[in-house]
């Protein structure tokens, strides 16, 4: 096995993912609720209502509890002097190497939910690809952005 990258992303990410999972589940549940009401009014078959209920509940469970947990457990990164390594993915584990000399610029980005929890997303762009580290502690992200761009600046090599 290749040794895993060392750094984990912030634990608060878990909370944020659960909240956004909760929001999308809420929408699904509302739709399901509407359908079930219709079903009761128009006398649909009982099993159709059952299936709808099952789908809504499974979706909520997966989005609020299962997925954030698995995702967080897998997410790791490491910024070394000459490269950045990322590991992510729930069902398919993906590991990516980005050489420092190929980094063109680094962005941080923060939505309202992330801001509330003092988190932000770091986006690392090469000339051809964009890679994202979601939900880092805000100061950590800022620090990371600064260190990547200073490390990347040392390596002055053209495309």
């Amino acid at each position: 096995m290749i040794p895993e990258p060392q750094t984990r992303i912030s634990e608060r990410a878990l909370v944020v993912w659960r909240i956004s999972g909760g929001i999308s589940s809420l929408i699904i549940c509302l739709v399901a609720g509407g359908l079930i009401t219709l079903g009761v009014i128009f006398d649909w078959l009982f099993w159709i209502i059952g299936v709808i209920l099952f789908i809504a509940l499974t979706y909520s469970y997966v989005m609020i509890f299962l997925l954030p947990k698995l995702r967080w457990k897998r997410w790791r990164y490491e910024v070394r002097e000459q490269e950045i390594e990322l590991q992510r993915g729930v069902f398919i584990i993906k590991r990516t190497l980005i050489p420092m000399i190929r980094v063109q610029h680094v962005d941080t980005q923060q939505g309202p939910l992330l801001r509330k929890y003092q988190l932000s997303t770091v986006m690392i762009s090469t000339a051809a690809t964009v890679h994202e580290i979601p939900a880092l502690d805000m100061h950590e992200a800022e620090e990371l952005r600064r260190s990547i761009s200073s490390l990347a600046r040392v390596a002055d090599e053209d495309v």
């Binding site: 398919i92 993906k94 000339a127």
Partner: peptide, 12 residues
Amino acid sequence: EKVQSLTIKQSH
């Protein structure tokens, strides 16, 4: 030196 990024993927 021309490769921008390299990814390996592995499913269960």
